[in-house]
Amino acid sequence: MNNTNDPIIRLIEVSKRYGKFEALKEIDLDVRKGERIVVCGPSGSGKSTLIRCINRMEEHTSGQIIINGHELTDKTKDIDAVRSEIGMVFQSFNLFPHMTILKNLTIAQRLVRKTPKAEARDTAMHYLGRVKIPEQANKYPIQLSGGQQQRVAIARALCMKPQIMLFDEPTSALDPEMISEVLDVMVDLASDGMTMLCVTHEMGFARSVADRVIFMDHGQLIEQAEPETFFNHPQHERTALFLRQILRH
């Protein structure tokens, strides 16, 4: 249906309002298949809202969001089907606390994809292996460290074999020593050709992995560029100020 050159995600003049507050102001953005994008910006700049609109966790107020050729509107019949193609990783992990790790990884496959039990289990174990914690399969989330929980959350999203992965500040809730184990998994995923949108403050990750870095402020997309240009020659004063603030130490 759609050409391989067509963007897998296309945002056209997307705005989002909460009452009078404009969280997003006419955002235009195209993401190609396999592209890795890091979204950064000060808190309240709308970066989380932006990626949450892409799987319709938030409904945009105006403009168009087109995922893989399907436009998201309130008439979108099967939003669950669209969502199952978009993996999402949250700041607070959000593992189901009453299910074992294995069950966390198989439940959506079973319910949404109707995958047979054994196959769902194999897929789960494959991705648990990939995030390097297969031995934790039968534990409950609370028995794992934060870093391990977040890796499980990534594996859980991957079990649905999504075409796009969204990361909403995946390392912000982690103790410093656990950040790198999660970033390693994300780097590994990036090298695999996954289309990724990451909201993160990990500028090292942005530098080494991103194809494009996007800077947002006050709901607007201020600047986007390759990491090299973005970090060394920011075009806008606000971008430069932000970079000076977060890279000061």
């Binding site: 966790m57 669950d80 949250f90 189901f96 606390p97 439940i107």
Partner: peptide, 24 residues
């Protein structure tokens, strides 16, 4: 957040109630 995680995985609203909300 747990319900959002369920929704993001494509789990339908009734199924989220049965498998996530109800047991907890």
């Amino acid at each position: 957040g747990l319900l959002e995680a369920g929704a993001a995985l494509g789990i339908s609203t009734p199924q989220r109630f049965i498998y996530i909300t109800a047991p907890l």
